[in-house]
Design a protein around this nucleic acid. Sequence first.
DNA 1: ACGATACGAAACAGTTCCGTATCGTTAATG
DNA 2: CATTAACGATACGGAACTGTTTCGTATCGT
Lengths: 199, 199
Amino acid sequence: MTSTAEAPRPPGRPRSVRAAEAIIEATLDLLAEGSTIEAISVEAIAARAGVGKATIYRRWPGKDALLHDALRTLKGSPPQPAGRSVREDLITLVGAIGHNVDPRAAKIMPCLVPEVKRNPEHYALYQSIVEPRRAVLREVLRRGIRDGELRADLDIEVTMAMLTGPMLIQRVMNWNPDLDVTTLPARVVDQVLTGIRAG
Amino acid sequence: MTSTAEAPRPPGRPRSVRAAEAIIEATLDLLAEGSTIEAISVEAIAARAGVGKATIYRRWPGKDALLHDALRTLKGSPPQPAGRSVREDLITLVGAIGHNVDPRAAKIMPCLVPEVKRNPEHYALYQSIVEPRRAVLREVLRRGIRDGELRADLDIEVTMAMLTGPMLIQRVMNWNPDLDVTTLPARVVDQVLTGIRAG
DNA sequence: ACGATACGAAACAGTTCCGTATCGTTAATG
DNA sequence: CATTAACGATACGGAACTGTTTCGTATCGT
């Protein structure tokens, strides 16, 4: 489409790449500072980006499209575990939850929650971010079963939720103020491995 | 203070109890329908409650105070497990997550998430709701340890997060579309009890 | 140099909201 | 019946936001 291969060379001044980047950056900054996704204003974005509102509306049809594009840049790619031991890989993956390429991602996530419930398009975007990471985690568990490190009758999907859930609620809503996020991954993985039933 | 004991019998028409209730109900209804906590308008609340705006401002100094009071009514009291077996109690408690007295609570929760991160007062309210439930869960685990049903060296706080996290992320953000919320409590509890390590 | 277009800034009209004020009406008390 | 205050309804000023348009300027290809 608008690839580098065949550019019809449109006349006139080309659109500034810097402006587009500044707009996206400003949007993410404002979200990271705590603005709700629907409380954020195009004017605030323009002001923060040092850009006229017209420049924004020249590129996106409206606020929703801009937000969608901005959030898409947070996507990144899921981490690839080292593959030495299941325990080590799980700790890596659990520790990476909410730790996307962009450090603002962790702060932005809570603001997304209501929108994800309301807007199917945003939910699809959310799933497109989360699913690849789930896939990596799933593969580690499957490998563990194949190698005999993990029980063969393990409930994979539930185990993933058990590994992900604690980290997510802690990062997103600080569910338990007494739990330290930095030590949580190892503690969760170890407890999940061992189980809690006596002897 | 304003107890029933000594009422100075203020003159004039007394405030309608029905109006106050209608206002709270309307607020919760609107929240449950998906309005973000800061996108909700006093005018909408008044209209929904069939009440003049002045009637609201006569009782609450502003929108924040009204919302705070409305959310406080969702508090309820934590469920009391039967106490027959640890497994049974855990399933009961995990199943009750996000299942407050008010059925609207589950729908309102996601809208709260961003606010809880931003407003310390809302975070305090949130903790005052969650902490008692954590306490009940903690007690069940302690009892299990005392009775020898659970390992003595168990990481209690992490185990609580492992039990709560999956249910919460599933209810609040539908984290994994393939996980059924109704069967989840038993599956989580069983997997947490057993552990995933082979042997 | 020239046309074409994007640029930042600013103004625009149309909404929406908050919090207050002012209606005439209604419900309790004395 | 007179007093008092809350009632629903409505209007208000001030502020904020949206989306569009118009400036004069800057920057491209030709």
